[in-house]
Nucleic acid binder design. Structure first.
Ligand code: FES
Ligand code: FES
Lengths: 151, 151
DNA sequence: CAATTTTAAGACCAAATAGTCTTTAATAGG
DNA sequence: CCTATTAAAGACTATTTGGTCTTAAAATTG
């Protein structure tokens, strides 16, 4: 449903929402370590996200990535659209080239409602709202600590 | 969530459930045309499915693929396991290497219930039952006719 | 203004998946 | 039993996605 790149992008942006600010920028190295994502790949990805105004950055000493006001008002759906485009997400579960209630495949009515709900959620909540929820509910962006504890 | 191959496999097997029998075998050429799937790719795939006892076949004139009793009592889940393995299906939506209620990612509780439902459906219903449902509800395995009508 | 740190940009490489082709073996029918 | 027809088997190629590396440019600091 989502490419690796899109997954990395979502997790990185939520990470930045939680831990960065205009004065507290974060280097790709730190992000990649904390999220267990390959660093050069992440760098290229964040660069793309910067172009789409989903993240902000500054170069030089104390430079790094962060989210400004505009960035925080984007949605998870915006990230998906930028990285993967909409097609992959809207596709039929069994690969028919259009997914619709008119010509439904045998699993359409099992799968489609679920996709609608998720999509609505991704479109409706801002990154800022998402990060509030994360703080409140204690969900995680990485299993690094968990892994460290159990090895 | 599913590879191309798995999607082709599911559609092909449901197709065979609907239209084939031990005496009415169907050639890969016909299947590939009706489902709009590349023929050599499908041939290789059906061969694999034959090895896993999900389809039956016979060579020579009037040969082709069909489903026997055993084949018809398999489930869609069996197909997925054979073609893709379980990992891809069970993975975390945001790419964490394990998906569980203990260390949930921020979208876990939105996504996970749905996957459980779909999975249960795929495990619980046999191919035979699925094909009955298709007949009853008029769902489709291909948009070929639809396409032909609209071009 | 020079040195250093960090992202930007884009060329490059690797792995997985998707898809094709060619040769062999089995079966049915004349 | 010979021929035509079909799947089986497996080597091969192409495309996409994932991932790396190198060089340039911007910003900070002394
Ligand atoms: S038509 Fe297959 S999921 Fe909608
Ligand atoms: S932990 Fe991410 S979907 Fe379950």
């Amino acid at each position: 449903m989502l490419s690796n790149a899109a997954q990395y992008a979502i997790r990185s942006i939520l990470y930045l929402a939680l831990y960065s600010s205009a004065t507290q920028r974060i280097r790709t190295k730190k992000i990649s370590q904390d999220l267990e994502v390959p660093q050069p790949f992440l760098a290229k990805l964040l660069q793309r996200l910067g172009g789409a105004d989903l993240v902000s950055s500054s170069k030089g000493p104390n430079g790094g990535f962060y989210l400004n006001k505009t960035n925080r008002n984007k949605t998870v759906w915006d990230i998906i659209v930028t990285v993967d485009g909409t097609e992959k997400f809207n596709q039929c579960f069994l690969g028919l080239h259009t997914c619709s209630d008119n010509n439904p495949c045998p699993v359409h009515f099992n799968v489609s409602p679920f996709k609608q709900i998720i999509k609505k959620d991704f479109k409706g909540k801002t990154i800022a709202q998402f990060s509030e929820e994360i703080k409140k509910r204690g969900t995680v962006l990485s299993l690094k600590d968990f892994d460290a504890l159990h090895k």
